[in-house]
């Protein structure tokens, strides 16, 4: 009986998620065909090509961009989560404020940064009107723009688990710290931060994973200069038409994401804040 409830989801997820992944896995071990398709023989050449310095550079760049985004989310998100956790009755309201932009279109949120950062964008227009600069600053189409877009889009992923762990914290801990003579900052570093560490770790990884595989943000805000793994995959499947290599890059990317998520879920304390 219960099987019938699960059947539609099993069929759909199997047909349109699991089987496609298996096809890509198979492609990653095949050879590129003359007209862009795939051919026998089986080979691991596509994976070996990932170790080529050009592609290692792209891999390194993706890891670097994702790591800096996670760090920026920590700096911006931790105080925000702390503030929300302390704000009593208005907690729900503030949490909604954090989440609301997250559910509004990802594409449009990214486009909004083009509007702000381009040469005739808002920031340059205002700075020029104030006579602070004489010609527009090159704000768009570089790593800085990509980082801004990623942090902006994924900040809620950091704030929510940190908030969840801060909410569980026993306020008596801070009172005890104060009784023992700790100042506000010292109590923050020695009590609040360690207690909320599961949330901080979870938040960092939850930001890192989507940033590593991001495609749209580097595509629109990096202007083709900031090529990341996601753009490499897209390029191999469309214009370059090297499906086996694109498939190998897909699996390298998916492997890293799945590994990080699995490590995260193994820890019981971290699981409790997700």
């Amino acid at each position: 009986m219960r099987q019938w409830f699960l059947l539609p989801a099993r069929l759909w997820t199997g047909l349109f998620f699991a089987i496609p992944l298996c096809i890509v896995l198979a492609y990653s071990f095949l050879t590129r065909g003359d007209y862009g398709g795939v051919e026998l023989p089986w080979t691991t050449e596509s994976y070996l090509r990932l170790a080529d310095p050009v592609y290692l550079g792209i891999l390194w760049r993706s890891v670097w961009v994702a790591a800096v985004s996670s760090l920026l989310c920590t700096l911006l998100g931790f105080p925000l989560a702390l503030f929300i956790a302390k704000s009593g009755k208005r907690k729900v309201f503030y949490l909604q404020l954090v989440l609301l932009p997250f559910w509004t279109s990802f594409l449009i949120r990214t486009y909004a940064w083009i509007f702000l950062l381009r040469d005739t964008g808002l920031i340059n227009t205002v700075l020029q009107a104030l006579h602070l600069i004489s010609k527009p600053l090159p704000l768009l189409y570089n790593d800085g723009a990509v980082l801004a877009g990623l942090v902006y889009n994924f900040l809620p992923f950091f704030v929510l688990p940190v908030f969840a762990s801060l909410e569980k914290m026993d306020p008596a801990l801070l009172e005890a710290a104060a009784d023992l003579g700790a100042t506000g900052w010292r109590a923050l570093w020695r009590v609040t931060v360690p207690v909320s560490m599961p949330g901080i770790v979870a938040g960092t990884v939850l930001v890192f994973i989507p940033c590593l595989g991001s495609y749209l943000v580097p595509d629109l805000l990096g202007g083709g200069k900031t090529v990341m793994l996601g753009n490499l995959v897209q390029n191999q499947f469309t214009s370059a038409r090297d499906w086996p290599f694109g498939a190998a890059a897909s699996f390298a990317l998916l492997g890293v994401c799945a590994l990080l998520a699995a490590l995260l879920l193994r820890n019981r304390q971290i699981r409790s804040v997700l």
């Binding site: 099993r10 496609p20 096809i23 495609y215 499947f237 897909s250």
Partner: peptide, 27 residues
Amino acid sequence: AAPVLSAGLYVSLITPEIVTGVSLLAL
């Protein structure tokens, strides 16, 4: 509990969109 299905759903959440997209295109 249906471990295979729920694992599949979790994996679908963490799979980068571009990977889901190209795999569907391949299918």
